[in-house]
Design a protein around this nucleic acid. Structure first.
Length: 259
DNA sequence: ATGGTGGCGCGGCCA
């Protein structure tokens, strides 16, 4: 079995002890991290390699930053969307154990109609083109990350309040559906799930205690991998910690490819 | 309530 996780840690510097503890308690083979918020020179490479992981990181100061960790070597790596010049570090792509992994920190978008929203939609268009090319080259593809899009109303604690708002707008959801239309499946929805299952809760207003959340952290799988997916969940345990990330990790298990 | 909390870094931006 190959276990894949995606976790927006909201500062790897602050969350490293929690990440180390979580990886020690959970048999994770591949993990995509988002919002590491540190430059590559400050990345805790030795600490994570000591846990047995190979590392691909693409960081910057203060904002954004992603990393891909795998127990197997990572090759043929990329850290940009083709043809989309962007100083913001939001992409970590690599092949590991015969599977292609795309780890993404999709722009938040701030508010519908804002400049950041326009950037988000342009970014998603570039992502669409990239995923199309990646799928053609790599039938076994995982696309994971903080999508900053709640796929549908089941993924929103108060759909009426969020209707048309950032993370839920038709254009954002349409862009996600466009990705799925290329031949990807939201693995979480392959399985029965409890109602009101979320992956992000605002720090404000006691959002986690009241379960005022959204499910925006996704693990998508190509058709070949979907058929080998055995489970897909959100692990809320790290969100209960002292000084937690505002996101919980998504976790999906895949039956290993028969060699 | 144009608020609330948290991270970065030390004022204001971003989520």
């Amino acid at each position: 079995m190959t276990t894949v996780a995606s976790w927006n840690v909201n500062s790897l510097k602050v969350r490293l002890p929690q990440l180390v503890e979580w990886l020690a308690a959970n048999p994770i083979d591949v993990i995509g991290l988002q919002e590491t918020k540190l430059t590559d020179e400050h990345f805790p490479q030795a600490e994570l390699e000591a846990l047995g992981y190979h590392v691909l990181r693409s960081g910057q100061k203060t904002y954004n930053g992603v990393a891909l960790l795998s127990r197997q070597p990572i090759e043929a790596t990329k850290v940009d969307l083709d043809g989309f010049d962007d100083p913001q570090r939001r992409v970590a792509i690599g092949t590991s154990g015969g599977v292609r992994y795309l780890n993404l920190y999709v722009p938040n978008g701030q508010a519908v109609g804002s400049e950041k929203y326009a950037y988000k939609l342009r970014w998603l268009e570039a992502l669409h083109r990239l995923v199309q090319a990646e799928l053609a080259a790599h039938p076994q593809l995982v696309v994971m990350g903080d999508f900053n899009i709640a796929p549908d109303d089941r993924d929103v604690h108060d759909p009426a309040a969020w209707a048309g708002q950032i993370l839920c707008s038709d254009a954002e959801r349409g862009a996600l559906q466009g990705l799925l239309g290329l031949g990807l499946t939201d693995t979480f929805r392959l399985f029965e799930q409890p109602e009101a299952s979320f992956s992000w809760w605002d720090y404000r207003q006691a959002g986690f205690r009241r379960n005022l959340g959204l499910r925006i952290d996704l693990i998508l799988a190509s058709n070949a991998l979907r058929d080998r997916c055995h489970s897909s969940t959100v692990d809320k345990e790290p969100r209960r910690a002292e000084r937690p990330s505002d996101h919980a990790p998504a976790v999906a298990q895949f039956q290993s490819h028969p060699l």
